[in-house]
Amino acid sequence: MSVLILADHDGRQLKAATRRAVGAAQAWNAPIHVLVVGDDTAAVAADAAQLEGVARVLRVDAPHLAHPLAADVANIVRSLAGDFQVILAAHSTQAKDALPRVAGLLDVAMIADAVAITAPATYVRPIYAGNLLATVESSDPVQVVTVRATSFPAAGTAAAPAAIESLPAPAADTRVRWVSEAKNTSDRPELASARVVVSGGRSFGERFEELLGPLADKLGGAIGATRAAVDAGFAPNEQQVGQTGTVVAPELYIAAGISGAQQHLAGMKDSQVIVAINHDPDAAIFQVADFGLVADLFDAVPQLTKALEK
């Protein structure tokens, strides 16, 4: 039995979450093969080949895969599925898009967002916005699984790189075409894998970036936001932390002006250290915070930024 991992990458480098998916795959104690789908993916494939525990890297390159679409990715994975008993990926938007389609093509169930693998077909996954954990057992011959990257250790670097093999790309599904994208071009670390996340709620208003930006930069962290701050237009969509946004588990999470709705807690309550800054001493966020400061955030956030400069 072997494990196939669908790599997540931006065309230039492997995302940190894939390293953790490789870490999660150790649970099966079986050969791990990593699939890299894209266009001109030599650098990404080389990154993947360096990961400890990876036996082989499969590259599928074609111009039409420069922005891989679910239909094409699913067709490629299905064509390989006969050789694998586990098809795994980190729970990214690419995997959430493509892997259920793979499972549908293979007529098997899928396990989404596993936070633990307790036996070869037994998983723990959050349900109801992380308010409950369900332990589930799959009876399918092929296990299609996404894992919550932050719940698993990252694979180390191998002594010698794995072999890289190029495979031909199937023809594009012509019924769907990529039109354009608008990506965040920030120099800050990616939200899902940042060591520090500084998050704010709606009460920052137009001063969201002005106040949180310097604090995040001081800490080398990423900026997160509540759904309310995003909906009000103070922060971009991709900064949303929560059940419907990104799930993070950094070493340090600073929640400023965040009340602590279930939807938001689902996305950050596994952080190692949580700091809450809120003017309301009864805010729910204080129940999960290791260190709470009851203060006006327009005073406290700049003060904190300044204190860190010393």
Partner: peptide, 19 residues
């Protein structure tokens, strides 16, 4: 195809302190 074996509340975080 998937059997639910158990449903449980996640581990609660330890109460923190106010500074």
């Amino acid at each position: 195809r998937v059997k639910r074996l158990k449903v449980a509340a996640p581990e609660q975080r330890k109460a923190g302190i106010k500074v």
